[in-house]
Nucleic acid binder design. Structure first.
Lengths: 155, 155
DNA sequence: CAAGATTGAAATATCAATCTTG
DNA sequence: CAAGATTGATATTTCAATCTTG
């Protein structure tokens, strides 16, 4: 019974520590080598895999788990730097798209190998196959259990 | 070898997603039910386990992975609310301690069961024994590989 | 000068309110 | 009125500069 509680609690502690150690490290490294904040990388990566390299702001906010206004401002800053641009939506004129620009595409192409190498170096290389599979199966349950309003419903 | 890459990459994606979903949820819940931000809970928890319920600001910043000025301001806000207080250091008069107040101790005692229950509800209960052990072994390697002097614990 | 802590300026996030369109 | 997006006010964090003490 104690053996049930303890490993899970330890897993939680390490989960928090790992993200607290990893994210600043990866963020700083990408920023220094490519001049791209990790949060911008996330936006560019989403756009790259989207049809026509564009995506509704609404959708972007949801899949990046960012509030509406948070996304508005992030896109503002990225647009100032020419990495994305906004595009009105013809079918629903309330909406808007964020579109990848050529400069944004180039920046991402530069960033991808650097970032993936860093993720491998600091995270993936420490996971055995079994450990990776166990993490996938466990965290899938955790993420799927999150109420939809946590994922979608932020002002 | 290719089978090594994919589960690990998926584990990374889920790792990011899980923390993005979990932390706001736990934070909001603790804030609503106890009126205590999760970041303050972390400070109180650190102080509770320290000798005499006090700790050098320097040490706190390191184990909470917070910058010097970030900690200064967090302690400012908590001191305003009477949860901690500052205390000069006799041996090295440049330094200062953060000390748990009775009010801070009470708030933490209220918060602990609520927060632990929430962590169980949203995270721990989804981990089988094997999955928890795999996560512990994997994340231990990840955390140990990071710059070593900064690691302490949360909850 | 170096180390511990604080302060000012800037970055980035959120909530609430607002504007525009359906 | 509801939905998509933006704006204003506020909160928290970091970096660089500063103050104090060793």
């Amino acid at each position: 019974m104690n053996d049930n509680v303890e490993p899970a609690r330890q897993a939680w502690r390490l989960f928090l520590q790992a993200q607290a150690v990893l994210l600043p490290q990866l963020s700083e490294q990408l920023e220094k080598e490519i001049g791209l904040p990790l949060t911008w990388y996330d936006v560019l990566a989403q756009l790259k895999t989207a049809p026509c390299h564009k995506r509704r702001l609404q959708d972007l906010g949801q899949c990046l788990l960012l509030s509406k206004s948070g996304l508005t401002r992030r896109i503002d800053r990225m647009e100032e730097r020419g990495l994305v641009k906004r595009e009105g939506c013809a079918e629903d004129r309330r909406g808007a798209f964020a579109v990848l620009t050529p400069a944004g595409h180039d920046a991402l192409e530069q960033a991808i190998p650097v970032h993936l190498a860093a993720v491998h170096e600091h995270f993936m290389k420490y996971l055995s196959d079994d450990e990776a599979n166990a993490m996938v199966s466990a965290l899938t349950k955790v993420v799927d259990a999150a109420p939809p309003d946590v994922i979608c419903g932020r002002s």
